[in-house]
Design a protein around this nucleic acid. Structure first.
Length: 566
RNA sequence: CGGGGCGUAGCGCAGCCUGGUUAGCGCGCCUGCCUUGGGAGCAGGAGGUCGCAGGUUCGAAUCCUGCCGCCCCGACCA
């Protein structure tokens, strides 16, 4: 490709709309152009990078036995009503009516459509297993789109759906996708981890997320330093240690704590540590108030609570709502004489002589003990794992890292096939629901994540497999026929040798060409300029490690080949 | 949804508080000269419904009202 003929509008300055580095670089390098909030045009160079990812995904999906198809983006609401998600999905599902007043929506995902196909076309165990996938634009009306392609409203996704005769067979399909995903992200040249995850709105029993490690991930993941356990923090199980034995239970006392409402101020006032205090948080779960007891220095993990309660929406109550629900102003809540449904983190019953709110303004209770002074029947793991907790799998130390979710695989089971009547006949003539799995990859997000993970002050450092062009040739002698001819010859040779080659043949000064080459992230840069005149050599520079070498034209092809080989 | 901020040339911004000629600056763009291994220099030039609509005023980018768009933050707390 010739720079003189392609639209790659690079920018020196950082547009003020971009917060994270991948977004800034994608704008500066002319990958994308925003049309409106969360919706972008993919310009030629950005699209080329997306195609790289798509091709890898496609090859590996096909290799894993999946078949490509393409489903409609506009979907009838009836289908979503059948699965029950028309009500459940929330405002992320963009709904509208067509000219005949038919309710419709834009597909944020395609379980309904694929299940509709399955029930119409898969009637026999002989038809199974089947795995169908597509690579397609999705629309989700995100509350707050941000970070460019990282969380857009419109984005490119590969989604696959498997259908099997039973759980065991579905397990095999799931495993195939698990392996395929590992191959895909390895081939992309990305540093990633596969973690246990929450299955969220899609539903289902079990899921893994594929996370690209980067400093600005939207998720935090916990990783064991010893074994191979890893989990999304939302889901990461806290392993309990019993610490209760042998401590004397003191007599409960009521203390006045005027104006002390926050954990920190109560602790300072009473001269205790936050690990001796238990806070009582009030949340609204699908509108119903729920109180949760948690050690003072712990964080509530809302996803765990949400899953425990089986609700779709959860949020902290505001002060007024707290008072309405409990009759107590926030800051003085406790378990004794609580009027609200009360849950406790598993850690709380193991604590001794704890301090809690007295359910009375300006008073707390000290030396309160579970079993003696109060009971809670609903006890579970509600808190967030910390870096100081042991690995729930092997008990060794863990660390927390940031990750960008680029892939997610789910075992769906039969929830969709049952609600939508997708049954097949088994060998014995019995009707049985199809057992499903679904598997997503955020294709456009992979590009963003790759840049987030691979960049420096000068711009993008593309992993070779994702680079739109592996090598760029800088013609620094546009007005020098000898140099230009050499640059063109090299460009032709490399193309012929099968490299995706770019040539900067613009009438620009050298500095601009160097800067743009760095910004655009070509893995290799060949400079044809004065050194060619002097010594008949050109310079080849590796973007990744910054090494440069002078080399004769005839050695270029073999040199690049060997570089790319490792 | 709540809170905050911003909308002035392709990009980044100033001007607004305290209304008053042709609305500025840097980058980019066009023309010419010059320069040619890390975003050069000189000279000339093009490009603006100052987000939209209404209002106040002799006069509005500037003050007021409404609308639209964009960006950021948000439930560490009981």
């Amino acid at each position: 490709m010739r720079y003189s003929q392609v639209l790659i509008p690079t920018m020196k300055e950082v547009p003020s709309e971009a917060e994270v580095i991948s977004h800034q670089l994608m704008l500066r390098a002319g990958f994308i152009k925003k049309l409106t909030s969360g919706i972008y045009t993919y310009l030629p160079y950005g699209l080329a990078a997306i195609r790289r990812v798509e091709n890898i995904v496609r090859e590996e999906m096909n290799r894993a036995g999946a078949q490509e198809l393409s489903m409609p983006m506009v979907q009838p609401a009836d289908l979503w009503k059948e699965s029950g998600r028309y009500e459940k999905y929330g405002p992320e599902l963009l709904r509208f009516k067509d000219r005949h007043e038919r309710e419709s929506c834009l597909g944020p995902t395609h379980e309904e459509v694929i299940t509709d196909i399955a029930r119409k076309e898969m009637h026999s165990y002989r038809d199974l297993p089947v795995n169908l996938y597509q690579i397609q634009t999705k629309f989700r009306d995100e509350i707050r789109p941000r970070f460019g392609l990282m969380r857009g409203r419109e984005f490119i996704m590969k989604d696959a759906y498997s259908f099997d005769v039973d759980d065991e067979a579905a397990e095999v399909s799931y495993r195939k996708m698990y392996d395929a995903y590992n191959r895909i992200f390895e081939r992309c040249g990305l540093e990633f981890r596969c973690v246990e995850a929450d299955s969220g709105a899609i539903g289902g029993s079990f899921s893994h997320e594929f996370m690209v490690l980067a400093d600005t991930g939207e998720d935090t993941i916990a990783v064991c330093n010893e074994c191979n356990w890893a989990a999304n923090l939302e889901k990461a199980e806290v392993k309990m240690s019993d610490r209760r034995a042998g401590v004397e239970q003191r007599e409960m006392v009521k203390v006045e704590t005027p104006g002390k409402r926050k954990v920190q101020s109560v602790c300072e006032f009473l001269g205790i540590g936050p690990d001796q205090l238990v806070k009582t948080l009030v949340l609204l779960a699908d509108g119903e108030p729920v109180a949760v007891m948690l050690r003072g220095d712990r964080e509530l993990e809302e996803v765990k609570l949400k899953n425990y309660l089986g609700v779709t929406d959860i949020r902290p109550a505001e002060d007024k709502e707290i008072f309405d629900a409990t009759g107590v102003p926030s800051g003085y809540l406790g378990p004794i004489n609580s009027k609200t449904r009360l849950l406790a983190d598993q850690e709380v019953p193991a604590m001794v002589n704890l301090t809690v709110g007295a359910n009375e303004k300006n008073y707390h209770l000290q030396n309160v003990n579970f079993g003696r002074d109060f009971e809670v029947t609903e006890v579970a793991d509600f808190r967030q794992l910390t870096k100081d907790d042991p690995c729930p799998s092997c008990g060794e130390s863990i660390r927390l890292v940031e990750g960008i979710e680029v892939g997610h695989i789910f075992k769906l089971g039969t929830s969709y096939s049952e609600s939508m009547n997708a049954y097949y006949q088994d060998r014995d003539g019995n009707e049985r629901p199809l057992v499903m799995g679904c598997y997503g990859i955020g294709v456009s997000r992979v590009v963003a994540a790759a840049i987030e993970q691979n960049h420096d002050d000068n711009g993008i450092i593309f992993p070779v497999p994702l680079a739109p062009y592996q090598v760029t040739v800088l013609n620094l002698g546009l007005n020098d026929p000898e140099v230009s001819a050499a640059a063109e010859r090299i460009y032709g040779q490399l193309n012929e040798a099968g490299f995706d080659t770019f040539i900067d043949d613009r009438d620009e000064r050298p500095g601009i060409k160097f800067k743009d080459a760095d910004l655009l992230g070509f893995p290799f840069r060949i400079t044809v300029g004065k050194r060619f005149k002097e010594k008949a050599m050109v310079e080849i520079r590796c973007r990744q490690d910054g090494t440069t070498e002078d080399i004769g034209i005839d050695d270029l092809v073999s040199h690049i080949s060997s570089k790319l080989a490792n």
